[in-house]
């Protein structure tokens, strides 16, 4: 017997075929619906994300709001004078996210970069006091936020020694918020950041 057998229990081809037959015989059509399974995975990932965010809370702190946001163009490619260079260099990062999921607590902002199926990429946890150069602009269909962060808990911001790329990735976050409560969220964040 090899060490392989020691860890995972092994099943004969006959046993496996029997199980496959049993499965094929009893599974309904809806079980093969990949869309449904992907929605389930998204939901479970979101639940896991919330648990993670709750784990960041201190004793006297609680979650006040959460929202989805997309990346603003400004964050990475906004300045067209050097955008082409920046774009080429961004290819070096293989984890540029699809969108953000953000939790606002009484004391801090927890930002998760998420990819498809709500998979968490990088996470940033920082106090409102660490936010610099905050700008929030209301547009017709969305609100645009961008700011710089002095210090985040996990020091997870992308870095680059290249002076062309540096301004686009260095401790900057740009988020577009499309949800209905966007104006309320903007006011809430402004209030926290400026200590109003």
């Amino acid at each position: 017997m090899t060490s392989i057998d020691h860890q995972y229990e092994t099943y004969s081809d006959t046993e496996i075929q029997q199980l496959e037959r049993l499965g094929a015989q009893h599974m309904g059509e809806e079980i093969k619906d990949k869309k449904h399974i992907k929605q389930y995975i998204k939901k479970r990932n979101l639940e896991a994300m919330r648990e993670l965010a709750e784990g960041e809370l201190e004793a006297d702190e609680y979650l006040e709001a959460e929202f989805d946001g997309s990346l603003t163009a400004l964050n990475y490619l906004g300045n067209m004078t050097s955008a082409e260079y920046a774009f080429m260099m961004l290819a070096a990062y293989n984890d540029v996210p699809v969108k953000y999921h953000v939790y606002l607590t009484t004391k801090k902002m927890i930002v998760y970069e998420i990819g498809k199926l709500n998979v968490i990429g990088r996470q940033y946890v920082f106090d409102y006091g660490a936010i610099r150069h905050f700008k929030g602009k209301s547009r017709k269909d969305y609100v645009k936020l961008f700011f710089k962060v002095d210090e985040d808990k996990y020091d997870a911001f992308r870095t680059s020694g290249n002076w062309l790329l540096y301004p686009f990735v260095s401790r900057r976050i740009g988020i577009n918020i499309f949800c209905e409560e966007r104006e309320i969220l903007l006011k809430f964040i402004q209030k926290k950041v400026f200590g109003i």
């Binding site: 499965g23 094929a24 093969k32 399974i37």
Partner: peptide, 15 residues
Amino acid sequence: IDLLIDTYSSLIYGV
């Protein structure tokens, strides 16, 4: 996910 379902859904459901 697609590949997992296409290849192993019967086996998983059977177990």
